[in-house]
């Protein structure tokens, strides 16, 4: 393993914002095969590695809207406040993953995202992640409004995603739902 967790987009090419381009709905900014080091004792992708893949897709999204090393160095960042993962199917070593991302909601400080991970070739849904993120002033250690340009980009993506259906697991609590007879 490397010294720390790196993302595929640190210092490398990524999709950048183009104010004239049509916005994909949902956004598709990240693909990856399942690396060998993500495999657990069951012979499948380990549960916590799903979050690494979703995190890399989120990082591609951050860079797309302009949150990169320079943005963070200037004092602001997006922090995750909640993540709710749904694991649907196993993934084996080398299987191609296709990640998509939908902006469900936002305000000046908060961002509600929904990710899907599918098998790139079969389209089978492998996992989803619902996330709540907060824009923060790093030094002050508290939430802070986004600057206008960032907020407008996120608002434009939110408008482009308004036509997408809201996935049925969004906002759903976790629990053991029992049938009446059980």
């Amino acid at each position: 393993m490397s010294e720390r967790v790196t993302t595929p987009y640190e210092g490398r090419g990524h999709t950048t914002w183009d104010p004239d381009a049509e916005i994909e709905a949902p956004l598709h900014l990240h693909d990856t095969p399942v690396p060998a080091e993500w495999i657990d004792y069951n012979g499948h992708m380990s549960e916590s590695c799903y979050l690494l893949a979703f995190g890399d897709s989120a990082d591609a999204f951050f860079r797309y809207v302009g949150i990169d090393e320079a943005y963070r160095a200037a004092g602001h960042s997006l922090y995750t406040s909640e993540t709710h993962l749904h694991h649907r199917q196993e993934a084996g070593e080398g299987e191609p993953l296709r990640l998509t991302l939908q902006v469900l909601d936002h305000d000046r400080r908060r961002l509600h995202l929904f990710h899907e991970m599918r098998h790139r070739d079969t389209g089978v849904l492998l996992a989803s992640a619902e996330q709540l993120l907060v824009h923060v002033d790093i030094a002050a250690g508290r939430s802070a409004d986004m600057a206008d340009d960032l907020h407008e980009r996120i608002a434009a993506i939110h408008r482009a995603h308004a036509a997408l259906p809201t996935p049925d697991m969004v906002g759903r609590p976790m629990g053991i739902r029992r049938q009446r007879q059980q």
């Binding site: 549960e47 909640e82 993962l85 694991h87």
Partner: peptide, 10 residues
């Protein structure tokens, strides 16, 4: 045992 769902609050 397989994990179906995980909800983390940071």
């Amino acid at each position: 045992m397989f994990t179906v769902e995980t909800h983390v609050r940071y």
